[in-house]
Amino acid sequence: MTDAHDPQDIPGGDRLARFEEQRSRLWAVAYRIMGTVSDADDAVQETWLRWQALPDDPPVANPRGYLTTVVSRICYDLLGSARARRELYVGPWLPEPLLADADATGVAPEDRVTLDESVGMALMAVLERLTPAERTAFILHDVFAVTFPEIAEAVGRTTESVRQLASRARKKVRAEAPRRTVDRAEHQRTVEAFLSAVMGGDFDALLSLLDPEVIWRSDGGGKVTAARRPVLGREKVARYALGLVARTFDPATMRVALRDVNGATGLVYADAEGSQEGVLAFTVHEGRITEVDAVINPDKLGHLDFDRL
């Protein structure tokens, strides 16, 4: 028998408990579809409101499936307008970074044998080039193992249509996603060596760590000074990185640290006044850095705790 004072005996208590069981999954779905923390938060909150408004009878037979469908539909509807805004964005648009000891994947970094591709900056950037329907279908099916009939309900398409959407998205992702290591230790060693080279002003060491076709993207959103076009090529990226450190890094006030960024080792920096803050995510292949994604738009960093550096 349930205790008389058990929260699940309180009207709505059982519904809240069932929602809380799924909250982390719902947020993970929403973040991967939307690419922003604020949109993911809003989608989960709207899902809760819709869940709360359901009549008690009949009860939902499969809360996990129902809630996943609801949050996916909300995100799918939001994504169209979000993409329109991103087309007007100043400079490269990058996802809002996640810093974590345990991030939205729900798995602590030390427990992950390989890098978490589904939340990595490199894949998230590729997902931006998919249509809203392709992105939603791919994420739900290939990342969260949602069935095609459930996805069809979420996006308002037929089962066969979403099967084709997922297939097209999968092909695009395979063709456009950068090559990357799945070895966490190799990735971390490379990022550590990068930090040592840029802080030491060692141009040759930095060159040896960069892929000849490395790309550096800076997301300042027009709010702070940043390159509005990607920097391409080993020598240009090396000079850009060293110049950035020379111009902005004051050892007396700036803090920099290795942190888990979207499932893999990255860099976080901030000064004492909070006037300069940024997060760098890296893609590494065969011991060389192929992509650097630098998020420095303050609007995309407000959810992070830089005091922990």
Rank of each mutant, 00 (worst) to 15 (best):
D293M: 14
A264I: 00
T131Y: 09
A169T: 00
T225S: 14
E21Q: 13
K300W: 07
D250N: 06
T68G: 11
R15M: 13
D39L: 11
E291D: 15
D103E: 10
L26C: 11
V295T: 11
P59Y: 09
S38H: 14
E291P: 00
S167T: 06
S24M: 03
A100C: 10
R18C: 06
V71E: 06
V256G: 01
I33F: 04
E20C: 13
R135D: 04
Q45G: 15
A270I: 12
R25C: 07
T47A: 05
W51Y: 03
D56H: 10
A185L: 10
Y240L: 03
V261L: 02
K236M: 14
S118Y: 11
A104V: 10
D56T: 08
G243T: 10
A185C: 01
E134K: 05
D57T: 14
D14G: 04
G106Q: 07
E46Y: 05
D271M: 00
F203V: 11
R189P: 11
E213K: 10
V143K: 03
D142Q: 14
G201F: 00
R229I: 01
V284G: 12
M199P: 13
G233P: 10
L49I: 08
R247D: 01
A145G: 06
V256I: 06
V60T: 15
A122I: 01
A125H: 06
D56Q: 08
G263P: 04
A197K: 05
T253D: 09
K300V: 09
R179T: 12
E235C: 03
D142G: 09
P95C: 13
K171H: 08
L301Y: 13
P11H: 12
H187S: 04
Y76S: 01
D101E: 11
A175N: 02
R308Q: 05
G13E: 02
P132Q: 07
M254Q: 03
R15G: 08
T158Y: 02
D39H: 13
L130M: 05
G13W: 00
V107F: 06
P132H: 06
T253C: 05
L54K: 04
L140C: 15
F148L: 00
A238F: 13
L67W: 06
S118W: 08
P97N: 11
H285G: 12
V231S: 05
D183I: 07
T290C: 03
S208C: 08
P63T: 01
W27H: 15
A252Y: 00
L242H: 05
R168T: 08
L207N: 12
G12T: 15
Y31P: 13
E110P: 07
F249R: 01
A108Q: 09
T105M: 04
L115M: 03
D211K: 07
V261C: 02
A17H: 08
V237Q: 07
E46Q: 15
Y66D: 15
V182F: 07
F282D: 07
D14V: 01
D41G: 15
G266S: 10
T190V: 14
A145M: 14
K171A: 13
D142C: 02
P212K: 15
L54W: 07
Q52F: 14
T265M: 04
L210R: 15
L99R: 13
P92W: 01
H5N: 12
T105E: 04
I74P: 11
P97R: 02
R239M: 11
G222P: 12
E213T: 14
A43S: 04
R129Q: 10
D42A: 14
A30I: 04
R184M: 01
A197Q: 03
